[in-house]
Design a protein around this nucleic acid. Structure first.
Lengths: 189, 189
DNA sequence: GTACCTGCCAAACGTTTGTTATGTACGACG
DNA sequence: CGTCGTACATAACAAACGTTTGGCAGGTAC
C-alpha cells in the first residue's frame, strides 16, 4: 500500500484494514498517529538493517562496493523498499522528530561505510588525501542519488547500469589511490 | 507552507488561504486537486530553471562544477526549494503521471549536464573511458544524494563541506583524465 | 434595457480523517 | 463465584477533506 500510494494514503483505517483489525486496536497501542508513523518507520529501518545481505568475505574497497550494492534498487523488492523510504522523506522533513531519526540513521550508515573506507585507505585502494568521513559521505550521497534516479527512470537505470556507474565511480577513486592499482592495461613506467 | 509542513498539508483550503481567495477560485481553474498539484509542480520546476544562476563565463569541467553548485542547498533559499522538491517525490512516486513528469525533468537536466561533460572530455578534463551520459548521470546522482544528506543533517553538511565534497569528487575524475592536469604540487617526471 | 456570459465567492454537499467513548469477551486473582 | 484489569471491537464524534452548487457582480451584445 505504501509502495503504490505513498505516505499520503497511510491512514489509521487503511493500516487497520491491511492487518484485518480495527482502528481500536491501533489506538489501543499507539497514543496517536504520529506515534504509529514513528514506529512504522522504525520497523522499516530495522527491517532494512536486518535483511539478508550479500555477506561477501571481503574487506576494504570490495566491502564498500558490496555495502553500496546492498542499497541500490537492483531487484524489484529492493526497489519497493527504496520507494517507501524515499516517500518517507516527505513526512520526515515535515516533522522535526522524524527528521532527527532519519538523520541519525543516515549518520550511522555513513559510519558503517567509513569503516570500509578506512580499510580501503589502509590497503592503498583509496586516496588518503581526502578524509575518511568525506569519502564515506560521498559514497553514501552517490548511492542515495542513484536510488532516486533509478526509482523515477527504471528503464534508464537497469541493474547493470547502476552497477556499472558504481564500478566506474569506485575505479576512478581507486585510480587516485597511492597503492599499487592493477588496471587491465596499465602503462607502467 | 510546503517548506514547513510538506505535501501532506497541501490542501485546497490551505492554498486558497495562502492567496487570500476561496476554494471556488481554485476549482474554477482546475478540474480537480491532481491538476492543481500537477501545475504547481510545473511552476516549481519552471521557477527552478529560470532562477538567477551563477553565469560564470566558463566551459567544460568548470561549467559542470557551476551547474552542480547551482543545485546544492548552499543557501537557505536553495535549501527551502530543495526541501519542497524532495518532498514532492512522495506524491510524484504515487502518481504515474507526476512520476513521468519528474523523470522527464531529470532526464533533461542530465542532458544539460552532459553538454558540459562532453566539453570537458574534449578538453581532456574528464576521462573518455566512461561514456558521456554515464558521467552526467553520476554527476547528477552525486548532487541529488548530497542534497538529501544536507537537508537531513544541515549541521554536518554546511555549504563549505558540500563544496569540498563536490570539488574532491571532480578533482578525482579530472585526475583520471588524459589531458594535462595541473595539480598544485605535481610530481612531474 | 435586457439578455447573456464569465469570474468568482460563500455555503453546503457527502466522505474521510484522527480521536474518543462505550461495550464486551476473557483470563487472573481473591 | 465475583470482580477486576487487560485487549480488543464497535460506534460515534468533531473536524477537515475534495467537490458541487447557487448566486452575485460586472462587462458585452444586441
Amino acid at each position: 500500500m505504501l509502495v503504490t500510494r505513498g505516505f499520503g494514503a497511510l491512514t489509521l483505517r487503511a493500516v487497520a484494514a491491511e492487518m484485518d483489525a480495527s482502528t481500536g486496536l491501533l489506538t489501543h497501542y499507539f497514543p496517536n498517529k504520529r506515534a504509529l508513523l514513528r514506529t512504522a518507520l522504525e520497523i522499516l529501518a530495522q527491517r532494512s538493517e536486518e535483511r539478508p545481505r550479500r555477506t561477501a568475505p571481503t574487506e576494504g574497497l570490495a566491502a564498500l562496493r558490496t555495502a553500496l550494492l546492498d542499497v541500490l534498487p537492483l531487484t524489484p523488492e529492493s526497489a519497493a523498499a527504496n520507494r517507501i523510504w524515499v516517500s518517507s522523506w516527505d513526512v520526515a522533513l515535515a516533522d522535526p522528530e522524524l527528521a532527527a531519526d532519519h538523520a541519525g540513521r543516515y549518520r550511522r550508515s555513513r559510519e558503517r561505510l567509513a569503516v570500509h573506507v578506512a580499510a580501503a585507505q589502509r590497503r592503498g585502494e583509496l586516496p588518503t588525501t581526502t578524509a575518511t568521513e568525506d569519502l564515506a559521505a560521498a559514497a553514501q550521497g552517490f548511492a542515495l542519488g542513484l536510488v532516486v534516479q533509478a526509482l523515477f527512470a527504471p528503464a534508464e537505470f537497469p541493474a547493470e547500469r547502476q552497477i556499472k556507474l558504481l564500478d566506474d565511480w569506485l575505479a576512478t577513486w581507486r585510480s587516485a589511490a597511492p597503492g599499487p592499482a592493477n588496471p587491465p592495461a596499465a602503462d607502467s613506467g
